[in-house]
Each structure stands twice: as C-alpha cells, then as structure tokens.
Amino acid sequence: MDTAYLIETIIKVVVILLIFSALAGIGTYFERKVLAFMQRRLGPMYVGPYGLLQVAADGIKLFTKEDIIPTNVVRPIFKIAPVITAATAFMAAAAIPFFPQFTLFGYTVHPIVADVNIGILYILGVMAIGLYGPLLGGMASANKFSLLSAARTAAVFISYEVVSGLAILAPIMMVGSLSLIDFNNYQAGGIANWIVWSQPVAFVLFWIAAFAETGRTPFHLIANDHEIIDGFGTEYSGMRWGLFFIGEYANMFFISFVIPLIFLGGYGDGSLLGALGLIAKVAFFFFFFLWTRAAWPDVRPDQLMWLCWKVLMPLAVINVVITGLVMMF
C-alpha cells in the first residue's frame, strides 16, 4: 500500500464528504421549492435571490442552536444515534462509482473510494445500518412518540430489506457479479443493453424498496408529523437533529446513484456524455422522491408490512425463479 494510493483515497473521501454534505443541504432547498411549486406556493424567497441562501441560514441556525439533552434520556445512546445515520450514509458511498474514470494532469483517477467486488451487498448492508439511528434515537428518548417511531423503524426494516434483497438478486444473476462497475460495463453498449428492459419487475420493486429504505413519503411513517410529531426527532435539537437530515438526504442521493447504475446503464461507455447522463438520471430519481412526497398520501405501518410481505416479496421471488429458468434454458 503505497503513499500515493493513501493520499488519493483520503482526498476522495474528503471530496465526497464535502460535496454530499453540501448537496444534502441544497437538497432541502430543492425539496421545499419543488413542493412549493407543486402546491402553488413560492417556497423560500426572502434569503438571497430566490431564497437560495436559505440553506446557509438554516445551517447557521442548526449549528449555533443549543444542543439540549433532556433529563430522562439514555445519554450516550441518545448522543450517538444521529451520528450513526449520517456516518453510515457516507460509509455506503465508499463502493459507489460516481463517475467513469478520467485523467487529471496525467494521473488516472477512479472516482470510487474502494472497488470491493461485493459493492452492491456492501452498500445495501451499510445503508440498512442507517436505520439504527432512528431506532436508537427513538428508544433512548424517553418519549412515547419517539418509542412509537422506533417500533415503526423496526417494522420498516424487517419489511423492506427482504424486498430489496430479492429484487436485486435477479440482475445479479444476469451480470454474474456484485460490483457496480461490472454492472455498468454489462450495460455499456447503449440503451438497448439496459437491465431495466429485461428486469422491469426487479426495477420497480427495488425502486419501491428505496423509498422505504430512505423513509420517503409513501413510507414516511417513521417520522409522520401528523401522527407522532416528529417521531425519533421529537426530543432532538440543533445539529444532532440536523445530522438525521444530512443522513436522510445523503441516502437519497446515494440510492439515486445506485438505481441508475444497476438498472439504467449508469455512466454508459465512460465518455463525458455518459457521465452527464448519469447526473441527469440521478437528478430525475431525486426529483421523483420529491414528486411522490407532493403527490402521494402516506401508508399505515400495517399497510407497509402487508405490501412488502404479501405483494412485493412473492413478486420478487417469482421474478427470481423466472429469471433463473430463462437463464438455464
């Protein structure tokens, strides 16, 4: 392990961390604007041109607010819970190839922190740990609404993971590898080679599971404002509360990278056009998260479990079996 490799890795980690923490902040701005336009409002308008500096204002507010830790909470767990959500979201990014490799001043850069050959398993596993944040925060808070939210987190966790795992199995069988770079190279031939054409069911199932994984609106039951105040976030204040949101938005961005990489050709043949295409796809999937939030009502916890276990899981299993049969004959 030479020094150049070490320095390169550290630089990559820092760049990803900075870009995506900033994007998480800007993501909240996008969300408020998109929701506002869909509801015929203006959204944030006062801070800066078109309210663009609202992100900075919110950041200053969150950073300088007093960090209140209520009396009856379990202190160490309460303190570490938001860190788990934010940290695991960024840890998952280690195995995502954000761009095709490019040459900078005669030095070839691979924009992936660690090209482990089990990339997709690692990403799904580490993202799943992220749900420990809401769970621990909710259980440590000594608040009934937070506890309800923790129980719902456990319910969400055991429901969606089976669906996302089984849905991803069929494309993995076709590609024969777990590395996202291999996924991308498999589809490098152009639009006709995209896995979505041969695996439409897996694509839709994984997309639905992504909503449950990030806790976005149809499955936003972990922190439903109108039912359980802010769920796990009820007792939090200041930057600890903000960390939950950085984690959530970073997760949304990373899953928006993973879906196109697996099903929609990723960055294609690795040209500049392909890289821009990936950005466009990521933007679409991120926008879709916000769109559903404006357009869909929330489901109840029992409806989520019913949907995952009785509808989506059988569909995923049938999809895997059919894929296996087609590949065998």
Binding site: N72, V73, V74, I118, L121, Y122, L124, G125, V126, A128, I129, L131, Y132, L135, M139, A140, A142, L147, A150, A151, A154, F157, I158, E161, G165
Partner: peptide, 27 residues
C-alpha cells in the same frame, strides 16, 4: 462474508431490539 455478516446481524439484532422494546422499559 464481511458484507453478509453486516447484513445478517443488523437484521437479527434489530429483531432483538423489537423484543427488548416489548418486554422492558429500555430507558
């Protein structure tokens, strides 16, 4: 095996949490 260890045990311990929630006042 490392990734499987993460996936399996996060799920398994999550189920334990659910039981812990039901049987104890965890605070």
């Amino acid at each position: 095996l490392g990734a499987v260890q993460i996936i399996v045990y996060t799920g398994a311990v999550m189920a334990l949490y659910a039981f812990g929630m039901m049987f104890f006042d965890s605070t």
